[in-house]
Computed example of a mutant assay.
Amino acid sequence: MSAIIHRLREKTADTEKLTINVGYVDLGHIDLLTQEGFYSNRSDFIRTAIRNQLAAHADAVKQSIVRHTLEIGLRCFRREDLEAVQAAGEKLRIKVVGLTIIAADVPPELARATIESLTVLGALQASPAVKSALADRIS
């Protein structure tokens, strides 16, 4: 009996790791609040603080997104998408707040031929070769 193996699609991470420096006293306060049960851990505290600041500045963020004509969320560009852009003789000006993925099967030449500019406020996932090909177009 032969086994059939199906490769599952790789799951895209829904978070990005940040490294921050925090003063010892602030860190002690965070640990105290965690110890007292206000937060489950340091990361929980930091995520909550970030959400609170984003909520406090929500109007300014919305206005900026409209002013800069940014897309919000996950934007994925597959080889077929870029080939269609190329066939139409067009170029993309990509502006995303969130995660932009340029699929692994996109060759650097196709990316360079179809992407005029790339602005990502968040994270960009692309092969090192594609990132290199677009280096002068990424802001």
Rank of each mutant, 00 (worst) to 15 (best):
residue 37 G to Y: 03
residue 55 A to W: 13
residue 78 R to I: 08
residue 76 C to V: 15
residue 38 F to V: 00
residue 117 S to A: 15
residue 42 R to S: 03
residue 23 G to M: 01
residue 106 V to W: 00
residue 88 A to K: 10
residue 92 L to M: 09
residue 21 N to F: 05
residue 38 F to H: 08
residue 62 K to P: 03
residue 79 R to D: 03
residue 83 E to S: 06
residue 38 F to D: 06
residue 91 K to P: 01
residue 42 R to P: 02
residue 54 L to V: 13
residue 74 L to P: 03
residue 111 A to K: 00
residue 81 D to G: 08
residue 68 H to E: 15
residue 74 L to S: 06
residue 26 D to I: 13
residue 60 A to Y: 00
residue 102 I to L: 04
residue 81 D to K: 08
residue 83 E to R: 10
residue 28 G to F: 07
residue 14 D to F: 10
residue 41 N to D: 13
residue 34 T to R: 14
residue 120 V to E: 04
residue 87 A to F: 06
residue 17 K to E: 13
residue 9 R to K: 11
residue 54 L to H: 07
residue 1 M to G: 14
residue 120 V to S: 01
residue 65 I to Y: 02
residue 35 Q to N: 11
residue 90 E to H: 14
residue 18 L to S: 10
residue 127 S to G: 05
residue 87 A to I: 04
residue 125 Q to L: 11
residue 42 R to E: 04
residue 75 R to T: 12
residue 78 R to Y: 15
residue 119 T to H: 15
residue 37 G to M: 02
residue 6 H to W: 05
residue 89 G to L: 06
residue 37 G to I: 02
residue 83 E to A: 10
residue 74 L to N: 05
residue 82 L to G: 01
residue 125 Q to I: 13
residue 6 H to K: 12
residue 71 E to K: 12
residue 16 E to P: 01
residue 14 D to A: 10
residue 89 G to Y: 07
residue 57 H to S: 13
residue 89 G to S: 04
residue 4 I to N: 05
residue 54 L to A: 11
residue 25 V to T: 08
residue 32 L to P: 04
residue 20 I to E: 02
residue 97 V to E: 06
residue 112 R to L: 08
residue 95 K to F: 05
residue 62 K to W: 07
residue 62 K to L: 13
residue 30 I to D: 00
residue 35 Q to I: 01
residue 131 K to S: 13
residue 131 K to A: 14
residue 122 G to M: 05
residue 38 F to I: 01
residue 84 A to S: 12
residue 120 V to A: 06
residue 25 V to C: 08
residue 114 T to F: 03
residue 109 E to W: 00
residue 106 V to S: 02
residue 105 D to K: 03
residue 16 E to R: 15
residue 135 A to D: 01
residue 96 V to H: 02
residue 78 R to D: 12
residue 61 V to L: 13
residue 98 G to R: 02
residue 46 I to Q: 01
residue 29 H to S: 11
residue 42 R to Y: 04
residue 43 S to Y: 07
residue 15 T to L: 07
residue 15 T to H: 11
residue 130 V to N: 01
residue 58 A to Y: 13
residue 28 G to R: 07
residue 117 S to C: 08
residue 65 I to K: 02
residue 74 L to F: 08
residue 68 H to Y: 11
residue 42 R to C: 00
residue 108 P to C: 01
residue 17 K to H: 05
residue 28 G to D: 09
residue 128 P to N: 14
residue 52 N to S: 14
residue 118 L to E: 04
residue 81 D to T: 09
residue 112 R to M: 07
residue 47 R to T: 13
residue 60 A to L: 06
residue 30 I to H: 02
residue 136 D to M: 05
residue 64 S to H: 12
residue 58 A to V: 12
residue 111 A to S: 03
residue 75 R to W: 06
